[in-house]
Amino acid sequence: MEQPDAVIHQPLRLKIMAALKALPDREQIEFVRLRALVGATEGNLGAHIVTLEQVGYIDVEKDFVGKKPRTRVRLVRAGRRAFENYIAYLREIVEAAPPPENRR
C-alpha cells in the first residue's frame, strides 16, 4: 500500500483541507473564520497555511478592507485532487482491513 500524502497527513492540515473542500469551487474563506473552524492559534494556522501554499494545494490572497488587513484562502484544483486521493487512501485502508471484532 502506498504512503499517505505527507503534507495532508497532519491533523491540523487535514482539518484545514477538509474545511476548504466543503466550500464550493473557487470560494474563499477568511483566515479568522478558518481559524475558528479548525480551532487553531493564529501562528499555528499561519504556519500550516504557508506549508499548504508552498506545495500548491491552496491559494492565499491578502488585501485590505479599509485599513484592516484581510487574508483569504481557497483550495485549488491540485489541492482538491490531492485531498480526494488522500480520502481514497483512507477508505482503502478501512475496506482492506477487517473490523477489530473480526480479528483473531
Binding site: P11, A19, L23, I29, V38, L90
Partner: peptide, 27 residues
Amino acid sequence: MPLSRNEAETALRDISTAERASATTYG
C-alpha cells in the same frame, strides 16, 4: 509506515466533522 484501520477511521471522522462544520458556517 502505512496507517492502521483505526487511524484511518479516525481521520475520516475528523474530515467529516470539519467538512460539516465548514459547510454549515458557509450556509
